[in-house]
């Protein structure tokens, strides 16, 4: 079963009266539970593609189904609700909420997005903090955590809503080599345990090496697909 079905996606921006074609006819299907990476140089369109897949932006033309829903028809409110229910995000700069503790950051989507009962929230948050090895750091604020610890919390936050798809844009770019390997291994382990699909936009060779399928993006087009053992 495909969690993403994208057909002939285009995205054109108008900047100062000049049209910029960020994506041109991208078609891709992503099978549920896969661990894939879009790679390419800066400005190739991989982040734009991730934004479309994450319902943060709308394609100029083309078809896009995520988790079985045609997301091109969603308005702002519907798109937000869809993201909150079906998609998790991991950002390059972690993007934790500075005033909340690690526990509260992971809990945030369950409170403000999914409105889950307190007992269920506590159970799920503790499970995930334990899974990412941050249970003992749960009362610390982001400024008290290292980069790797922040990214672990961010991964827990992305998974706490039990999404079908996690999108990660350069998740290891701000981490040192060893931490980056640990984070990649952690995400892969969680994928194996919960079956969530992980999609990366990256040019980090460590992620590329860990991915099962690598798509090459160049000048807004998919120019290559490579399945790795």
């Amino acid at each position: 079963m495909n969690v993403i079905r994208a057909g002939d996606l285009t995205k054109t921006y108008a900047t100062d009266g000049v049209e910029v074609h960020a994506l041109m006819g991208v078609s891709v299907d992503v099978e549920a539970g896969s661990f894939i990476a879009f790679v390419g140089p800066s400005g190739s369109g991989k982040t734009t593609l991730l934004n479309l897949l994450g319902c943060l932006d709308k394609p100029t033309s083309g078809r896009l189904e995520v988790a079985g829903s045609d997301v091109t028809r969603l308005d702002r409110r519907q798109a937000a609700a869809f993201r909150g229910a079906r998609i998790g995000f991991v950002f390059q700069s972690f993007n934790l909420i500075a005033v909340l503790t690690a526990f509260e950051n992971v809990e945030y989507p369950l409170v403000m997005v999914q409105d889950r009962p307190a007992i269920e929230r506590r159970r799920r948050v503790l499970e995930l903090l334990d899974a990412v090895g941050m249970a003992d750091q749960r009362d610390k604020r982001p400024e008290q955590l290292s980069g790797g610890q922040k990214q672990r919390v961010a991964i827990a936050r992305a998974l706490v809503t039990r999404p079908e798809l996690v999108l990660a844009d350069e998740p290891t770019a701000n981490l040192d080599g060893e931490t980056a390997y640990t984070i990649i291994a952690l995400m892969k382990k969680l994928r194996d345990e919960v079956g969530t699909t992980f999609v990366f936009a990256t040019h980090d060779t460590r992620i590329i090496g860990a991915a099962e399928i690598v798509y090459t993006v160049e000048d807004g087009r998919l120019t290559g697909r490579q399945e790795l053992p």
Binding site: G54, L56, G84, F89, N95, I97, Y108, P109, V113, A158
Partner: peptide, 16 residues
């Protein structure tokens, strides 16, 4: 602004 972007991206509704 970035924090607003983050909470909006993870699905916080505009009215929230």
């Amino acid at each position: 602004v970035r924090e607003i972007g983050t909470i909006a991206a993870i699905g916080t509704l505009p009215r929230k």
